[in-house]
């Protein structure tokens, strides 16, 4: 293929309006050459998943600072399963206590980036994760 761009949906689920992190990461991913579909605030898990499917996104990045991470991650991941789209990578960040991370990974989140993570670690991780995912697919 001439160009195999990484497409990623960056979303703010729920009612939390703190989008500094989401916007910074959206810009950082763009600057690393990706196409970032930015959905804005107040997205339901259904909207996020449908968006990722319509946009044929490789990954969904969600940013949550309101403490509602358990609910939103599990809902998004379940819906992806329901839509037979579990190959779409889910990752995220925000104010997420370390103790909660193992469970989020267990239910299927690809990575959780805590406060203070350099944006480059995030984009590097995503590039690798997408590469692995594509290698597994027979497109």
């Amino acid at each position: 293929m001439a160009e195999d761009k990484i497409r990623v949906v960056v979303a703010k689920p729920g009612l939390d309006g703190h989008d500094r992190g989401a916007k910074v990461i959206a810009r950082a991913l763009r600057d690393s050459g990706m196409e970032v579909i930015y959905t804005g605030l107040r997205q339901t898990p259904e909207q996020i998943v449908e968006t990722a499917i319509q946009e044929d996104a490789d990954a969904i990045g969600i940013s949550i600072l309101s403490g509602a991470h358990e609910y939103y991650f599990s809902k998004v991941i379940d819906l992806l399963k329901e839509k037979e789209a579990s190959d779409i990578i889910v990752f995220g960040g925000g104010v997420i206590p370390e103790d909660d991370v193992p469970h989020l990974l267990e239910i299927g989140a690809g990575a959780i980036f805590g406060p203070g993570t350099p944006t480059t670690s995030c984009s590097e991780w995503l590039k690798n994760a997408v590469k692995e995912k594509r290698a597994m697919e027979t497109r």
Binding site: G14, L15, D16, R42, T44, S66, G67, A68, E70, Y71, Y72, K75
Partner: peptide, 9 residues
Amino acid sequence: MAQGECGKV
């Protein structure tokens, strides 16, 4: 829309 958010912040 309040699902998962009640009493959180």
